[in-house]
């Protein structure tokens, strides 16, 4: 109670920072007033860029050496040997010859977690359903050492084009890009060992890099995303082999796009939720009128202000045999 009194009023901050008021009410319900204030203040700061070093092109040591020769100051990220934080760079990090050569990719550190959690193997058939712009797809290929097969789905033709470009630059050879609606993936008669579903979302976890999100999405939009995400996850689980694993993630903090999607889908599929050995808060047990599946606690909510990165929701499901 004392802490609550000491914190800056999140509603006033929300007004000051131009948030749609409904967002602040929801954040407070999820996080409490003090944490909401911390989140809002953090969203006004600037994140250091992070890069993923691409071992399909060059060893981690060599790329680090090449960047350090350019006086790029890098810092390790705990638990992610291929990830580095850019502390300072006298060169434009998104336009160096090493970048163009695919030696590294600009990618948020928390966005690397989902591929690592999926842990794809080099003899597996992997589905990446909503693949563009390709950061996670190329990370999957890296973890598979360019072996096995990734089926990358993307509905938009423009996004397929940029996905192809990223994969080519990064030297990815084990991927098939389909311009396809994930909701019809069953028509292909393929069964996947593992699936990554980084679902399209309202993006309330990445306001720090997209301030327009403070105003751009309504509650109605969130409910539309919920419907779409539930369909995507349902169809993804249909084509997952028994015993197969699926990682669902979004960069949204909205329970309707995360815990509620999982709870609904678990009504129709026999799946186990796996514990995740990463930093973050547990999934919510309830929100407003919704009560969620008890195993949702095994999911992780990664908040921007506590992780010093983008916000994410991540859960790993194993389909029963």
């Amino acid at each position: 109670m004392k802490k609550e009194l000491n914190c800056i009023n999140p509603y006033k901050l929300g007004e000051e920072y131009d948030y749609d008021p409904y967002m602040i009410e929801r954040f407070v319900e999820i996080l409490g007033e003090e944490e909401t204030s911390n989140l809002l203040q953090f969203n006004e700061t600037k994140l250091n860029k992070t890069i993923r070093l691409n071992t399909l092109r060059s060893s981690i040591a060599r790329t680090v050496e090449l960047l350090e020769r350019k006086r790029v100051q890098l810092e390790d990220i705990v638990g992610m040997p291929e990830a580095k934080e850019i502390i300072n760079s006298p060169v434009p990090i998104g336009a160096t010859p090493e970048y163009l050569g695919g030696y590294y990719m600009l990618q948020g550190k928390n966005s690397m977690l989902s591929s690592m959690i999926l842990n794809p193997k080099s003899d597996e058939l992997i589905g990446d359903f909503a693949a563009a712009p390709g950061g996670k797809t190329s990370h999957l290929a890296q973890l598979m050492n360019n072996e096995g097969t990734i089926i990358a789905l993307e509905l938009s033709s423009n996004r397929c084009r940029s996905l192809k470009s990223v994969l080519a630059r990064m030297g990815v050879e084990n991927t098939i890009i389909l311009q396809y609606d994930t909701r019809e993936i069953y028509k292909l008669d393929l069964m996947f060992d593992k699936i990554l579903l980084d679902a399209p979302c309202s993006g309330s976890g990445v306001i720090i890099s997209d301030h327009s999100r403070k105003q751009s999405k309504t509650l109605f939009d969130i409910l539309n995303y919920h419907k779409y995400q539930t369909e995507l996850l349902t169809e993804s689980l249909r084509v997952l082999k028994p015993g197969g694993e699926l990682v669902y993630c979004t960069c949204s903090l909205e329970p309707e796009e995360n815990e509620l999607v999982i709870t609904k889908v678990l009504e129709n599929f026999d799946c186990k939720i796996q514990e995740l050995n990463i930093e973050g808060e547990v999934g919510l047990e309830k929100f407003q009128q919704h009560e969620f599946h008890p195993d949702i606690r095994k999911a992780k909510r990664i908040y921007p202000h506590t992780s010093k990165g983008e916000g994410f929701f991540i859960i790993k499901m194993v389909k029963e045999k």
């Binding site: 030297g171 098939i176 890009i177």
Partner: peptide, 24 residues
């Protein structure tokens, strides 16, 4: 584009909507 045999084997089973595969 150049395809590894395991990629080609799957590509052959996909009748349409294939945007790209392998390395250009």
């Amino acid at each position: 584009c150049a395809l590894h045999p395991n990629i080609e084997a799957i590509v052959k089973t996909i009748p349409h909507n294939l945007y790209f595969a392998g390395i250009p």
